[in-house]
Design a protein around this nucleic acid. Structure first.
Lengths: 193, 193
DNA sequence: TGTTTCCGATTGAACGTTCATTCGGGGCGC
DNA sequence: GCGCCCCGAATGAACGTTCAATCGGAAACA
């Protein structure tokens, strides 16, 4: 353990601990003191690595966004046909949330309380481009019904969040096969009949 | 204004004010002091009508659940065919959330932070019966694909929440016609092809 | 009718706790 | 000895809740 890796570890530990605590106690329910305790770090140390609590939240949000994008658009999808790309994109993101419940809880809470005290969201924009481009190409090439992108988005993303949420909270228990079935429902809904 | 109606009004004012504040500032972001101020009531008065903050939240949750059920299963749907029942049930609930953004924000936050400090959810069960019965009847009568209820639920409810959410946050702007289009996507996904 | 008694409704200051953040200092590598 | 990393007690604001004090109308009595 050299100094540099320890330093890097400390920052990382703070982020990971925060995400885990948010999963358990929610965005507002995780005080700095608890983060410090669980990350084996002093409260003051946190303020050495981050400007304030909001900065931790914002960084987590950015990290999770990147991970979500990476899950949906992996390189090995490039060659596949449109339908396969849709299926693997949908199930990958859903599996990501199931495997990383903290990310789902975080995203949901972050999006559902626009005006948390001390947490102001400046950039509320979604990288809509990649998704809308993808679906647009599906329509142009005759795979999908012609319709506005945002109508499709409601169904596709809504189902991902709900499915992962139900699974995580233990309401239902979805197998890999179940995820494919759900993706099939959606595909049947959006494909050109 | 006799005494009785004033008393009833005060209780109602507290509930309504709380819901509106939660819409703006989130579940954890609305202190009792602010509720008191906006409801034109002293802080102590709130504790005359409710045991504590949790009691307000719990009552709001029950009220909203009732309203949701009422929207989905209205009496004038009784005679209609299955497809029409699905359409009006889906769009009604979606329109309800769009017309009552506070209810959507509340439900989302209530469900997404299971362990809010001071807010313990004892009864996490959904009145699944009515919904599952409805979809089961659709399968038995040959309107829907044969599949487990919970797979359908993910898509149907996920889309409702996401659609209303996108509309409320102003990300997209859904017309009544758009809601029907989205319902059509889902219907095409779950119907027996 | 006028007066007194009573009691629930209402108030807002006060309390104890918890929170995010600050600060002064200690230790270690260069 | 200078600069960076780290500590944890200290700070003050904000929170949910309590409580002694007040209000005002209804009932009881004269």
């Amino acid at each position: 353990m050299n100094v540099q890796s320890e330093t890097a570890d400390k920052r990382k530990a703070i982020l990971e601990t925060t995400l885990e605590l948010i999963r358990q106690y929610g965005l507002q329910g995780t005080p700095i003191s608890l983060i410090a305790k669980n990350a084996n770090v002093a409260a003051g140390t946190i303020y050495h690595y981050f400007q304030n609590k909001e900065a931790i939240i914002t960084e987590l949000h950015n990290v999770i966004r990147e991970e979500m994008l990476a899950e949906m658009f992996t390189e090995k999808n490039e060659g596949k046909d449109f339908r396969s790309q849709f299926f693997s994109g949908w199930t990958n993101l859903c599996r990501y949330f199931i495997a990383n419940p903290g990310s789902l809880i975080f995203i949901q809470q972050y999006n559902s309380a626009p005006h948390f005290k001390g947490i102001k969201k400046k950039n509320n924009k979604i990288p809509v481009d990649k998704f809308s481009e993808f679906f647009q190409s599906g329509m142009d090439n005759g795979y999908l019904k012609k319709m506005e992108y945002n109508l499709v988005a409601s169904v596709v993303f809504g189902a991902i969040m709900a499915t992962a949420k139900y699974h995580i909270t233990g309401r239902f228990d979805y197998t890999d096969q179940d995820l494919c079935k759900i993706a099939t429902i959606i595909w049947d809904g959006i494909k050109l009949q």
